[in-house]
């Protein structure tokens, strides 16, 4: 009868392996986590552990990052929306502020004596390149005849040309068909201011007249439309002409492209 080696008996092997593991455990725990066996096991299974760790990290941190990024994107979108809304409000506020300032200037502006003033909302400037017109809106119960003078906070704007319901088409002083009697505020030289599109030119002023750059021209009242003393513009260029008449260019006193409110003037006895 052949006798089996004790090491080949499963029970003996079981006891030996378990005892070995227990001894190893006791040794490792006494030495701490950085035991040689632990390092050996980590080295042997390193690649697998590395993949395991990567997968674990990818899942947890990746998901966290994904959710964080998604939340951040949602927040950014919301902030952008808020920003757009605030920007819109700011633009409205700026427009309101500008309008308030213009109204204040308009109220403070000197009014010609003997005239009633009526506010009108300036809507749009049009007619370029052929003419220069302004559409204004006024109270519907009021009626203004053609050639009613219109002024702004800084000076003359134009005259009523046509009425279309509550709207009035204003012929601006810069329109080439506009002519206004003017005089120099400094020297009293008289002339006629004609529209040139963006600027005005003063005609019928002799070469001997005293006109300098920077002089202010105001309405003279000779045209029978504008009352005297309303600012028309400032001289930007002046030179003597070959026909004994000066070439005078005025920059309009009113910022015609930037008007929000204007005043229509009506004679008090009308």
């Amino acid at each position: 009868m052949s006798r089996r080696s004790p090491i080949r008996r499963p029970e003996v092997l079981l006891v030996l392996l378990m005892a070995g593991y227990l001894v190893l455990l006791g040794w490792q725990v006494r030495r701490g986590t950085q035991s040689a066996l632990s390092s050996l096991a980590l080295g042997a299974f390193g690649p697998f552990l590395s993949i395991y760790d990567s997968a674990n990290r990818l899942t947890r941190e990746g998901l966290q990052d994904y959710f964080w990024q998604r939340d951040a994107a949602v927040k950014a979108e919301r902030l952008e929306e808020d920003n757009r809304e605030l920007q819109g409000r700011l633009e409205i506020s700026q427009a309101l502020e500008k309008e308030v300032l213009q109204l204040r200037e308009l109220i403070k502006a000197p009014k010609p004596a003997g005239y009633q003033v009526f506010g009108a909302r300036a809507l749009t400037e049009f007619g370029v390149p052929f003419g220069r017109y302004l559409l204004v809106s006024c109270r519907s119960d009021l009626s203004f005849p053609d050639r009613t003078p219109v002024i702004g906070p800084q000076g003359a704007v134009g005259r009523v040309q046509t009425r279309i319901g509550p709207l009035y088409r204003i012929l601006l002083v810069t329109d080439p068909s506009s002519a206004v009697g003017v005089m120099s505020d400094r020297s009293g030289v008289h002339g006629v201011a004609v529209g040139e599109g963006r600027s005005l030119s003063v005609r019928w002023v002799s070469n001997e007249a005293d006109v300098k750059a920077g002089d202010l021209f105001v309405t003279s009242g000779e045209d029978g439309i504008f009352p005297p003393g309303i600012r028309m513009g400032t001289v930007t260029e002046v030179s003597d002409g070959p026909d004994y008449l000066k070439r005078i260019t005025l920059s309009p006193a009113s910022r015609l492209g930037d008007l929000m409110w204007v005043l229509l003037l009506r004679k008090s006895n009308a």
Binding site: L17, M18, Y21, L24, L25, Q28, S35, A41, L42, L49
Partner: peptide
């Protein structure tokens, strides 16, 4: 068991003992 210990625990032997049994 040893493989499992390497994966999960700082010490080799806990799962080793249990898995052997």
């Amino acid at each position: 068991g040893a493989l499992c210990d390497a994966y999960f625990l700082p010490y080799v032997g806990f799962h080793g003992t249990a898995f052997t049994l």
